Simulated assay, not measured.
Amino acid sequence: MANDDNDDPDLGIVLDQRRRRATEIRAAARAYVRECGRRHEVVDRELWGQHRWRRDGEIKRRIMCDALRDEIAQGIAVVDVWRRFEVSGRIALRHIGAANYTALYDILDRNGLAAGFKPRDIAAWVWEGKMSVEDGMDILGIEDAAEIEDLVARWLAGEG
């Protein structure tokens, strides 16, 4: 008789922990992304998870760290924190492995989440002096100043 994945006791523990602790995993993912925002860098997820679940046994801690990795990879926690200006676009893009801010908006759209701001808002705020060019670049994850200048120019021309 072949060994079915459902007969694997470790798999049973993993699924049980992920189901019972789903809310905790989602909250931890948002807390982790916020911590990255506070530190202005991508924090080592494994070390952060080991600290967060230090009172749990090794098996549960490993399960939770793996679940945290998977939750972050989905991108929902990342864009939820990003749309509230709690993490920069550069860090958000690194978490989801994307090249530009349109990927962040795609995740928002796919999951029915409202954007806290649109690129045209950033362009307007930069043009009006309510936000520095550097801050505009940071929140959208733009590396090249010419790209933010182009965004502002397109907004002024009514294209965005």
Rank of each mutant, 00 (worst) to 15 (best):
D4S: 07
D5Y: 06
D7T: 14
D8G: 08
D10M: 09
G12T: 05
V14A: 09
V14N: 03
V14Q: 05
Q17W: 01
R20G: 08
R21S: 12
R21Y: 14
R21F: 14
T23H: 11
I25V: 12
I25P: 12
R26M: 07
A27N: 13
A28N: 02
A28S: 10
A29S: 14
V33H: 07
R34Q: 05
R34P: 00
R34D: 06
G37H: 02
R38C: 07
R39S: 06
H40A: 11
H40D: 09
E41K: 11
E46K: 07
L47C: 00
G49M: 02
G49R: 02
G49A: 15
Q50L: 15
Q50C: 08
H51I: 14
R54T: 12
R55D: 11
D56R: 04
D56V: 03
R61D: 05
R61G: 07
R62C: 04
I63E: 03
I63W: 03
I63Q: 07
I63S: 09
I63M: 09
M64F: 02
D66I: 01
A67T: 11
L68N: 01
R69L: 10
I72N: 05
I76E: 09
V78Q: 09
V78R: 09
V78I: 10
D80P: 03
D80A: 01
R84T: 01
R84N: 03
R84I: 01
F85M: 04
E86S: 09
E86A: 12
V87A: 05
V87K: 04
V87D: 06
S88P: 04
S88L: 07
G89R: 12
R90L: 10
R90V: 13
I91A: 08
I91W: 06
R94H: 10
R94Y: 03
H95A: 01
G97T: 09
A99C: 06
Y101L: 11
T102F: 00
L104G: 08
D106Y: 05
D106S: 09
I107K: 00
I107Q: 01
L108Q: 04
L108H: 05
R110E: 15
N111W: 12
L113S: 01
A114W: 02
A114P: 00
A114K: 11
F117I: 01
P119K: 04
D121C: 10
V126G: 11
W127G: 01
W127C: 07
W127I: 00
W127P: 02
W127D: 13
E128T: 14
E128K: 15
E128I: 11
G129C: 05
G129D: 01
M131K: 01
S132F: 04
S132D: 08
V133P: 04
V133E: 10
D135E: 11
M137A: 11
M137R: 12
D138R: 13
I139D: 05
L140C: 08
G141N: 15
G141Q: 15
E143K: 15
E143Q: 11
D144E: 14
A145M: 00
A145C: 00
L151N: 10
R154E: 13
R154P: 00
L156F: 10
A157K: 11
G158Y: 09
